[in-house]
Design a protein around this nucleic acid. Structure first.
Lengths: 148, 148
DNA sequence: GTGAATCATTCAAACTCTGAACGATTCTGA
DNA sequence: TCAGAATCGTTCAGAGTTTGAATGATTCAC
């Protein structure tokens, strides 16, 4: 005779769990990449770049769901790290075309390695088939939401 | 002959997916509860309160993983909304004991309803057994992390 | 060619959150 | 009993992040 009002409580919802676990995962990942002088959004930018060329910084901002002015400062920092290269588009000289450098790809690889290590810790309490099911479900949700 | 470097890329990790989907879920939920003049953290505080009495605001802060000074302002706002009641603990008059009012419980219920509606949208692309598997996996992860 | 539109950039400002005060209260041990 | 240490809530200044409105440069449309 529990949950008198409609069904289960807030903590049982997927949305709540994604929010809280996502925040936790983000914080932990942030700690890991601190060594490389990177924040989560820097990795986000590099990830988008690694998935395909961005026409412009505005394009990048749209793909990241963030203001163009933020892309500027993120790219500034990545450029000083040598992870990214800014090249004026000869076809349209208003545009700055960002490309990952070899060092940028290397950095991104290191981040991916950190993430996989975190995955191990995070999913340690799950059975292998549970992990597979989780990956599959998250993959579908990401695709559905237009996320990388 | 893909992924030359170690295994899959960053976007395929559980940590990355939890981070991005969690941010998206949080944003969408924030929009939904804007009507009630609530932010995500307000709901977080009320959720913790609904799960069991908090000895003090510091206890609450610890459970939320947040600075005690933030609990003050969150509680201030919830108090003006009439969602929460501050009562000095007679046993230890330094402590403010926060309790959910009837209106607070009602508000929390409304938030849960919004979350369940979002769940529907979010998981619409998943088969029923996939949703069940996702819920189960997230539930284990939350428990493991000591989250509500 | 001229005006409108688009791009990157800068900058001030909004927002969230923290950490260091501070006063009030309780605890500790001599 | 009582003085000093510890704990609680609160305030406040400030750090960190992100946005939106300028601005200047370039391109587009007609």
């Amino acid at each position: 005779m529990d949950d008198v009002k409609g069904s289960a409580g807030l903590p049982a919802t997927v949305v709540f769990r994604l929010g809280t676990l996502g925040a936790l995962a983000g914080d932990r990942f942030a700690e890991k990449i601190e060594v490389y002088d990177l924040k989560v959004k820097h990795v986000g930018l590099m990830t988008v770049l690694s998935l395909g060329p961005a026409v412009s910084q505005q394009d990048l901002a749209a793909k990241m769901g963030v203001a163009p002015s933020l892309v500027v400062s993120l790219a500034d920092h990545l450029e000083t790290l040598g992870a990214v290269q800014r090249v004026r588009d000869p076809q349209d000289r208003r545009r700055q075309v960002l490309t990952l450098t070899a060092h940028g790809r290397d950095l991104l690889d290191k981040c991916a390695t950190e993430a996989r290590a975190l995955d191990e810790e995070f999913t340690a309490a799950l059975a292998p088939d549970q992990v597979a099911a989780l990956r599959q479900a998250l993959s579908v949700l990401s695709a559905e939401a237009g996320l990388p």
